[in-house]
Design a protein around this nucleic acid. Structure first.
Length: 595
RNA sequence: GGGCCUGUAGCUUAACUGAAUAAAGCAUCUGACUACGGAUCAGAAGACUCGGGGUUUGAAUCCCUGCAGGCUCACCA
């Protein structure tokens, strides 16, 4: 049942009957809270057609609708705005539809398929706050598309080769004394990260020593023994030196184990992992094919370029003069490989920070030039940096917020506040632990997802850890309270099932408001998908919880004497709980039965 | 220098496919548990939507311009 569409049809009928003509489209918008009604028709554009003033036009339409439309029960006119109230019967019908569809807001599988890439870290450093935003965003977008009937393929590309990992290897070899995650008790990614830092320290002191001997800065940067060692390792890696390969495999293995633990706690997962070490050569063939087709061109020195000046960009190198690949080449190869691996996907969503906007613009243009029609369906889900109150996160200054530490702190804070409120009598330690995890992670995920992805955001630790106000735990709390009501109802023998008939005929304004909010859910999910913005769902869940809390505070449910109205309130609390759970589920956030 | 993005109460955010007195949260102040869970609710106070022009019956929203901040423009990844 599409209220907007029905209303639109009725209004068109009214316009034809009243004025003999109708505009192409209507402007119907939600009524501002200070006025009575839910839908507002903006009459300024219509008044021209009607040949009457906006107010009179609005009044005429309102009267016509009241008499003929059926679903309109009241109207008022403010300036050129026609505010309409729909009848309780209409709202009850809307609610009946929601109640009777357990899959409300979920589209059955459509056969469509899409790929979402997120995370994609380097393997020399542990995951940090920025990765959390990335992973939560990608994971949420994947969930949202699933709700719209898509089969979603979650992937990431792991940057497992290159000079950065060789730096950690060189430092470990020099200073590690055979240290392993097992011997040190450190998580694998932390251990490798430690040696990356170690490299930097040793490198700097070597440069300083050389400079003191009178070597120029530039020469010192190249001559520093540990850097020479790292470069040497990279060359030997490319030559498939078995000793280097086994060291590389061992250290990357540590990192993957460490990452895996972090992903598990974050609640994200992947269907397939791509490794640059396995894909970096693949783009080269495509680029050479492009040269044959005349899409790219070769310079005298042998380097290959693409000319994007006609697209308002410049020329980009695709193969170095020595024939080796650059980053772009790899990404071309990886994209094509993915479409071969998953032939049914209609497109790819790349969850990557906004510093790579130019890169993706170029990548998609190149894929298009190579003749891949799916290039148009590739989307760069670009998101802004996460700043700290002290400014940008900088690893050099040690201001990076570690993902594991942050999740642990959030769970601890949740545990502390839960204890303080003392509502969890009789819970076992393991239940309590799971609850703290749910609330802490819920607060963190919600905090990072409620902001429009494309905006740069500020991460204030004090604010992120708050559990009141516009937060995840606020919504979790609303859900828990609804579940408590349903338990009480069940004790009294009242149950909710989708097939039940709602006998109530009258609604309280606060009930109407909640039903109107519930009704918006599918449209919000669609909007979130089309704009690749989980923030839409996050803000919706908050609005629904807030609307319900207002109802809850004004209407004592169980003191209602009319059984039909009591039944309605139980049923509708149940629906709100379900939608909150679903909406939060799309964000990767669980909701508790009690808290 | 070229390109892209952002600028909204003290702070963090909504609204950005043009509409009414710009909507919330935090912080501040005032109220509400003999009632279903106060991690809640009600109320007060708080904004010339960065500045200046323009289009429009109507601009936070669209156009031009200036200012501030960010990202980017490698034979790096």
């Amino acid at each position: 049942m599409d209220i907007e569409q029905i209303l639109e049809e009725r209004i068109f009928e009214a316009l034809t009957a009243l004025f003999g003509k109708r505009p192409e489209s209507l402007q119907i918008q939600p009524t501002n809270v200070e006025f009575e009604g839910t839908h507002t028709l903006v009459c300024f554009p219509i008044s021209k057609i009607a040949g009457k003033g906006p107010e009179e036009t609005a009044r005429l339409i309102g009267e016509y609708l009241l008499q003929h439309a059926g679903i309109v029960s009241k109207f008022n006119v403010v300036k050129g705005f026609l505010n309409l109230s729909l009848s309780d019967a209409t709202w009850l019908q809307v609610f009946g539809n929601i109640l009777s569809s357990p899959q409300y807001g979920v589209v059955p599988p459509s056969g469509k398929e899409i790929m979402v890439e997120y995370s994609s870290p380097n393997t020399n450093k542990p995951l940090h706050l920025g990765h959390l935003r990335n992973n939560f965003l990608g994971h949420a977008v994947a969930k949202i598309y699933e709700a719209l009937g898509y089969k979603v393929r979650r992937v990431q590309i792991i940057n497992d080769r290159g000079i950065h990992i060789c730096k950690s290897m060189a430092a470990w070899k020099n200073f590690g004394k055979g240290e392993t995650p097992a011997s040190s008790g450190l998580k694998g990614d932390k251990l490798v990260g430690k040696y990356y830092v170690e490299f930097d320290r040793a490198y700097k002191s070597e440069i300083k020593a050389l400079e003191e001997k009178g070597v120029s800065k530039e020469a010192a940067e190249k001559e520093a023994p540990i850097m020479k060692q790292a470069v040497d390792m990279l060359q030997r890696w490319e030559a498939k030196d078995p000793e280097i390969l086994s060291l590389w495999k061992m250290m990357n293995g540590w990192v993957y184990e460490g990452f895996e633990a972090t992903y598990r706690r974050m609640g994200v997962s992947f269907d397939k992992l791509y490794y640059e070490s396995q894909t970096y050569l693949l783009g080269k063939d495509e680029v050479l094919r492009g040269v044959e087709q005349g899409v790219f061109f070769k310079k005298e020195d042998g380097s290959v370029w693409v000319d994007l000046t006609s697209d308002g960009l410049d020329q980009k190198v695709l193969l170095r003069s020595d024939g080796t690949s650059v980053y772009m080449t790899q990404d071309i190869g990886t994209a094509i490989l993915r479409f071969r691996d998953f032939p049914n996907i209609e497109g790819q969503v790349y969850t990557v920070g906004n510093e790579q906007e130019y890169h993706f613009k170029v990548l998609f243009l190149i894929l298009n030039k190579l003749g891949y029609a799916w290039a148009r369906k590739c989307y760069h889900l670009s998101y802004g940096m996460v700043d700290l109150p002290s400014g940008k996160m900088k690893s050099r200054e040690g201001t990076v917020v570690d993902a594991d530490d942050l999740m642990a702190e959030m769970a601890e804070e949740a545990a502390r506040q839960t204890q303080e409120l003392g509502k969890i009598e009789g819970m076992t330690d393991s239940d309590l632990n799971a609850l703290s995890e749910m609330i802490g992670l819920g607060a963190l995920k919600y905090f990072l997802l409620k902001v429009d992805p494309k905006k740069r955001m500020l991460f204030d630790p004090n604010e992120s850890i708050a559990l009141q106000g516009h937060t995840g735990p606020f919504i979790q709390y609303t859900h828990a309270r609804i579940r408590a009501i349903l338990r009480k109802a069940a004790e009294r023998g009242m149950h909710v099932d989708p097939g039940m008939k709602v006998n109530a005929t009258v609604l309280d304004p606060s009930e109407r408001a909640v039903i109107a909010k519930l009704y918006q859910y599918p449209a919000k999910v669609l909007d979130a998908a089309q704009t690749y913005s989980p923030a839409v769902v996050a803000n919706y869940a908050y609005e629904l919880a807030k609307e319900y809390n207002q109802f809850y505070q004004t209407i004592p449910i169980f003191s209602e004497e009319d059984p039909a109205r009591l039944q309605l309130r139980i049923a509708f609390s149940n629906c709100v709980g379900d939608v909150l759970k679903k909406a939060m589920g799309l964000l990767g956030i669980d909701v508790p039965e009690r808290m």
